[in-house]
């Protein structure tokens, strides 16, 4: 996916800011906090995971998402949010 396509979505940007603030979150929690339904939220999270920005961890029935620690893209996004939100 092209850069502009990844970041042109408002929900995706909200998700990134949310996970940046809270560390890691499961799908239901993300959906609740950004006011989107479960299926759409899950789709956005999968896009961000596929781009290597987020990574998913499964604990039994719970899927938790957080920034992919080893990814340069994840680091760049975190730096961007950090600079923007200060």
């Amino acid at each position: 996916m092209e850069l502009e396509e990844v970041f042109s979505s408002k929900p995706r940007m909200r998700i990134l800011k949310l996970i940046y603030t809270l560390g890691s979150l499961n799908v239901s929690n993300v959906a609740k906090k950004i006011g989107l339904n479960y299926a759409s939220t899950s789709e956005h999270l999968k896009v961000l995971e596929a781009e290597g920005i987020l990574q998913e961890r499964t604990y039994g029935r719970v899927r938790m998402y957080r920034f992919n620690e080893g990814s340069a893209k994840a680091k760049a996004v975190q730096n961007l949010i950090d600079a923007w939100e200060q």
């Binding site: 809270l22 499961n26 239901s28 929690n29 604990y59 719970v62 938790m64």
Partner: peptide, 10 residues
């Protein structure tokens, strides 16, 4: 260790 881990239904 995982402060946002959901608390219900497990």
């Amino acid at each position: 260790f995982r402060p946002t881990y959901p608390s219900r239904g497990f």
